[in-house]
Write a protein that binds this DNA or RNA. Sequence first.
RNA 1: GCGAAAGUGGCGGAAUUGGUAGACGCGCUGGACUUAGAAUCCAGUGGGAGUUAUCCUGUAGGGGUUCAAAUCCCCUCUUUCGCACCA
Length: 824
Amino acid sequence: MEYPFMNIEKKWQDIWQEKRIFNPEDKSEKQKYYVLSMFPYPSGALHMGHVSNYSIGDAISRLKLMQGYNVMQPMGYDAFGLPAENFAIKHHSHPRITTEENIRIMQKQFNSIGLGFDWEREISTCRPNYYKWGQWFFKKMYEKGLAYKKSSFVNWCDDCQTVLANEQVEDGTCWRCDSVVRQKELEQWFFKITDYAEELLDFSKVIDWPERVKTMQTNWIGKSFGTNIHFKLENSDEILKVFTTRPDTIFGCTFMAIPPEHPLVIKWLKEEANSEMQKFCDKVMNEDKISRTAEDATKEGIFSGRFAINPVNGKKVQIWITNYVLMDYGTGAVMAVPAHDQRDFEFAKKYDIPMIIVIQNPEKTLELDEMEMAYVKPGILVNSAQFDDIDSVASKKVISDWMKENDMGEQTITYRLRDWGVSRQRYWGNPIPVIYCEDCGTVLVPDEELPILLPENVQIGKTTKNPLLSVDNWVNVLCPKCNKPARRETDTMDTFVDSSWYFARYTDAHNEKKPFDEEIADYWLPVDQYIGGIEHACMHLLYARFFHKFMRDIKLVKSDEPFARLLTQGMVTKDGAKMSKSKGNIIDPQYIIDRYGSDTLRVFMLFASPPEKDVEWSDEGVKGAFRFLNRIWRIFEENLYFIKSNMNNSTSESIASNMKKLRFSTHYTIKKVVEDSDKKMQFNTAIAQIMEHLNNIYAIKDFEKLNYHEKYIYAESCTILPKLLYIFAPHVSEELWKMLGNNELVHETGLPKFNPDFLKKDEINYVVQIMGKVRGQFDISVNASQEEIKKIALNIPNVQKYIEGKEIKKIIVVHRKLVSIVAK
RNA sequence: GCGAAAGUGGCGGAAUUGGUAGACGCGCUGGACUUAGAAUCCAGUGGGAGUUAUCCUGUAGGGGUUCAAAUCCCCUCUUUCGCACCA
């Protein structure tokens, strides 16, 4: 007989809801614990990845609930964005309608899993009461000079008809649709995340984040120390600034390399018609990003006919327009030192540009005509005037200091991180609260007019242009300042803006006066445990940190970081590949829940592997989890009366050794499960320990014959099960707890405590090693002296066999573990 | 190419202040129950030798440190992830 999970799960879900155990008060004497799993896009169906993610969050929050914390675990929907718009186009509907419909469907699924979410705090980013505050934040950004508009080359996806942030371009293709991203010049809104670059590199305020994520963000921000060197243009007062991390190679500079996008190039082309140069520039700029930045892309260039003057020695160097220099890094210009930079080397070889060796290899003297690649390692300076013979590493500072003194340049820091482009040319997003007036320029929409509602009557999918442009009565407004006809901004915000502050909105989800109340937010924030996929390392997690620091600076929050602890969970795979529709390897969680119940699915997910690793789906594994819950159920079903009547009759009778072992197992299991779940979040080993304990219980057969004390020990070994299992399988645990006659809910009585006395052993098992190989073992009283232990070890017949005729050089006794004999 | 992490039975995974490798689960084998199956229970299960006792071998491969190495050090290989003309 299978245990009746169907009745049990629904019943307890209703009771939890009725007793409001997941609806914490905002002000409480209890210490708070805020558990958050990344909210889903409302696709209309929960998939295994969600279940795996939320099982982890729920296990943590149930544990914290038992430990007496005031636990908040909210949930909502990341509802704006392109997929919703495309979904609506496909179904000939409106994204608002399809999204709300999808949310209703997902809500039902959420309910059937019995996750401890506080639904009273639910948010959906596409609802006006939420996106109003996104617009408000945009205004604040603008007022603080952190939101600005500029024309720039942006990543453009033709398929999605919109701009992509750098983070959303993967290998030159769109992260959503995989089509090739090209560069397009557009007027765009940006958030000045670079103002916070330095602080974002500082992880000292987070409590526990995976090193991997910190490294990824650090690399993404890409701080590098270098020098800006000023090259004068020949016959001109203009200065070409270059950024270099190798000022030690300045005397080896033989040409300058700049990209076609460089302002100087644009100016030159305006000044004089040069068809060859124009042709080259057009060609490079029209190339898509993937081929332009491909690993094997050939370096190309054209001589501009102009020269720059090397400030350190007055030498004339040619200025080349090239395809391998990036406009948006450093100063967008490179001093090329072909002898000591591989890229410049290849370019110089191809166009026959001279090279000068300025760093000598101390191990093997470099000869120009023998060089097959650039020498990029440190060495001794040569051909560098007064700096000759200095070590190249040390010379960096010497040379840049000297240049600063002589106004040739200055030390500087450059970041790879760019400002965050937030404009999207799509309908289903948060409108940017800006109005353009011919007289007043860029005007912010007044607070009392927020939220700017998205118009309903949009013909999405019918136009290749920004859909909002087609809604005349929405676009055309009166200027808030001068009341003359003006036009709305028709771009909407990147959905990552919506998800950059949602964790704070949950603390006060229904506030109509402000994004959230500062005091309430201060009680809950930061999030104690955040759980989500690693794929957000350089996007969502970086943006959210930036936003949080911004919110701190405008006095909305007090903490420095949004997420104190971060757990990046693995994905659910089947046959080694991520579950996806296109691969056809999807298992519907609802099907599993209907067949085995939510508790089984959770136990399977948490047991299959540690949370940060991928979970390989296994039908047999699910059955195994189900079997485990059934085994627990059966113990209670068959022996309920015995357990109940022996729960409280502890006596002082002496007990048999197998019962001592069972008592040890009981208390060790409490210790191990709590430790593994709480600090390490290794639920797989915690569950394994419960399984092992269950095996130990099953090993006791004729318990009717036990004495009272032993019966009590048996009963105790069973009664801890529902309490520990509650972390992973809460429904069945509540039911068993109730069967034992308890009227309180499981978490209300707290975690069981182990008695350290019962973990002490009378005897210790020692292993005997001879030259590192195990040759015997013995049990001995914990009180035995070193001498006794050695003596017994040496007397084991099998040990005798190996030491016979040999000289014992040393005997090492490892406390409570082993005896190691060195014999030759 | 650079950087990071990892590599343990047929499978998922345990064990790293160095101290009995393979916990727990899946699968498999044998047995009990059953007319039979399912379910359940019991026993076994890294490879090899042996009737047992026990022995040899074994944590990607090679070398080293140590009484003792999955764990520490060096080299090589493989996989995964991130970055990738960033000056």
